[in-house]
């Protein structure tokens, strides 16, 4: 019963051997689900004429989009409203990745557990570091775009010039802490669920549901919310 990221297949791409790992396949599955849902909703809404007072599917979709936009505006302020769709998409992707521990997943390894759950892609530091680096480069990019390279560099030597190394370390520490926070919480949850499912059957009656609720749902939603809110705060404070 191990929690590492099993290699599903290896593909050699012009001489370079590429390892297709479990978390890559799972994240492709999740991306497929999201793209499919978006396309289907688009087709359904296109055929019907959009009423002023939304009902049914249109109502659901509108409330979701409104919620994500208000979330962005309340964190980044009114003038950065155009970040809404991006951070909304990122939030939904990370949320679905965190919740994927609930879905029954493909079985890559003969683990002793009865039920093989999908291994959340965010339980892999490569995925979370990639997301954190997106935020890091957005922060620096928008900071330079908003303040110009000279002010941005001057911003690094904030109160006095001898503090420059500390500011640089502070900037580099952001992606590390962002990615390890998401990765650590989800991996911790996965390990605890995996360990728990190896207990004999009588322990699996009611308790796993409670564990799932805490680890997969509460921690998953909270970490997705925290990750996106911190990213928005870093980008918006870099632009101020």
């Amino acid at each position: 019963m191990d929690f590492s990221n099993h290699v599903v297949t290896t593909v050699n791409l012009f001489g370079f051997e590429l390892w297709i790992t479990e978390s890559m396949v799972n994240s492709w599955i999740i991306m497929g689900i999201l793209v499919l849902a978006a396309v289907i909703i688009r087709i359904i809404l296109q055929r019907r004429t959009l009423q002023a007072v939304p009902t049914g599917l249109q109502n659901v979709v509108e409330t979701i989009v409104e919620m994500l936009d208000n979330f962005t505006v309340s964190t980044m302020g009114e003038k950065h409203r155009n970040f809404g769709p991006f951070y909304g998409g990122m939030f939904i992707y990370i949320l679905l990745c965190n919740l994927s521990g609930l879905l029954p997943g493909p079985k890559y390894v003969e683990s002793a557990g009865y039920i093989q759950f999908m291994r959340p892609p965010t339980a892999d530091v490569a995925v979370t570091l990639a997301l954190a680096l997106i935020t890091f480069f957005m922060t620096q990019g928008y900071g330079i775009k908003a303040k110009g390279v000279k002010n941005w560099a001057k911003g690094l030597t904030e109160p006095m010039w001898p503090l420059t190394p500390l500011n640089v370390i502070g900037e580099l520490a952001n992606p590390v802490s962002l990615s390890f926070r998401l990765f650590g919480n989800i991996l911790g949850g996965t390990i605890i669920m995996g360990l728990y499912y190896n207990l004999p059957w009588f322990a699996l009656v009611g308790i796993p549901a409670a564990l799932h609720i805490y680890f997969d749902i509460f921690a998953g939603v909270l970490q997705a919310f925290i990750f996106v809110m911190l990213s928005m705060t870093f980008v918006s404070s870099a632009m101020e």
Partner: peptide
């Protein structure tokens, strides 16, 4: 919740090193 999650990280670092 945001502040508490930020305070969580060093505990997570200890967890990761232990794992």
């Amino acid at each position: 919740l945001l502040g508490a999650a930020v305070a969580e990280t060093t505990g997570i670092y200890g967890l990761i090193v232990a794992i």
